[in-house]
Amino acid sequence: MERLIVGTEKGGYLLTKGRRSWDVEGPAFPGWKVSAFGKAPDGTFLAGLGSNWFGASVHRSTDYRNWQQVENGPRYPEESGLKLNQIWVFHTTGDRIYAGVDQAGLFYSDDQGLSWEPVPALNEYPGRADWQPGFGGLAAHHILSAGDRLWVGISAVGVFRSEDGGKTFERRDRGVMAVGDPDADPESVEPGRCVHGLVSDPKDPDRIWRQDHSGVYRSTDGGDNWERIEEGLPAAFGFPIGRNHETGSLFVAPLTADENRVPIDGHLAVYRSQDDGKSWHQSGRGWPDGGQFNGVLRNAMAVDSQGGIAVGTTGGSIFVSDDDGDNWGQISISLPRILAVEAA
């Protein structure tokens, strides 16, 4: 990876690989939470901002340096009673961009992100009054797509799938443990399945991998059924999951447990699977030898198809590999708490 755009609790930073070190530009949006990045169909860059004071907004740029807020960003109808607290994710498919937000919902733009419309089938989903937020909020934070099919991951509710381009949605969590209720019926589709991360195989979108609050799962039928895949992981809890679609390598960043969200015994490392999730091993070499007690949040892992992978931690550190996770190096920088990392 030659360039990274990094969203933090206090602004966005552009990192460019130099001959011996990385050049740092920023912050863009000083003082603002920068929680999501995306790219419009025409190549325009998108950023999602949030603030403890001033709400959430979408911004566009052609160079990652000069940004303009869009006037008609995602906004719930007044009568909905819902509030837009944060932009969690952008997902572009064909000529359309989707945005997943907190309070949990979905919006779309067909004009390069200049204006946004709600997706009523999800935003007005029956029973949503019973949805409970995770620690990070009630957030629609992952979107997958394949043609007219759409998957949306919502914390702490579960995965929703649409077969008709977002006109209707159904829950798809069979086999996933409910949060805080290990005795709950795994066949149940009651809310309370806390998906943390999702990634699918673009060549076979029915193959989906899931980092959940309750563990790591795989589906081979588009999310109809999920099975646990944790062999070799030091812990099943974590947030991000990524995949190199060229090699098929999968990556997760395990944390000790729900109630102790730090790397196990201070040993920060990404774990990799090279057999579609059947088994996991620490990803390569180059990790610090202990003393690391900051984890990786759900949007703070970027994986490309050229072997590049980067993770940012809640302590502001960034680790990068250019060989599919065989060798890792730490960028010499200490940023605010990292929320989002993307290859730029």
Binding site: S51, F54, G55, S57, G73, R75, P77, L82, K83
Partner: peptide, 9 residues
Amino acid sequence: TLRVHLFDE
């Protein structure tokens, strides 16, 4: 662009 920042839905 101020509307979303000053006032909620």
